[in-house]
Amino acid sequence: MKIAVVIKQVPDVEARIRAEDGKVSLDGVSFILDGMDEYGVEEALRLREGGLECDISVLALGPARVQDAIRTALAMGADEATHIVTDDQLDALAQAKVFADVVRMQGAELVLLGGKQADWDSAALGAALAEELGWPLSDWTTSLELEGRALTLRHDTDQGTERLEMPLPAVVTTQQGLNEPRYPTLPNIMKAKRKPVELLSLAELGSVSSLTRIADEAIETRDRRNEILSGDAATVAKELVDRLRNEARVLA
């Protein structure tokens, strides 16, 4: 069977983000494979190492630079990749349409992807993709077992956690706690360079457009008081509580 892992390339978490003229500037920013997506790559590899016969296909959408994130996923051990090349910023619902087409084309039966993307802080792609495909969804998954074609998972809810059982095909979003993603080894980084990456243009997949548009992006920092209180523990405690009650008025 085929497992599709949808990945995203995002700015390094330590990168300095700037905004100019109402738009985020990513010049000079270093990019990484989204940490949330590494759990999906790792889980696919573990399924294979657990005896599942499968091809692991990485899917990514974005400009040419996204190749670097694809190579990272291949260096972790994925077999092949499809890069939908576009400079357009598609919203999560438009992306879901594109990925759904590719997943169907490739005949994948399990889709893994990160629970939330670190660029647009969006958690919508997994659910939208499940809906486009008409497949069940396990979101915020912390454990996954596959017996034949039956998935047993545990995932987070607003109240805590619950167990889900569902048949393939299915969409599973991943997060911290599911596994410990491996680091690519040097030999695997070399091997990854020879793995096939299929390039698709967005136009080849039919027209897709977003129903939303980004009108403005700005860096907003709140002015902070930045006051360091000093004195012995008892004095500082009294002063802090007093300030929170009577100056900031955030404490009853």
């Binding site: 958690a123 659910a127 809906e131 486009e132 979101d139 607003d158 939303t212």
Partner: peptide, 24 residues
Amino acid sequence: SCNRRGQAVAPRLAVRLKGALLED
């Protein structure tokens, strides 16, 4: 609300009803 429930349900509703999603 964009809690876990909203994160799971809102995108699916938007896709099903062919509408836009304004998230979080």
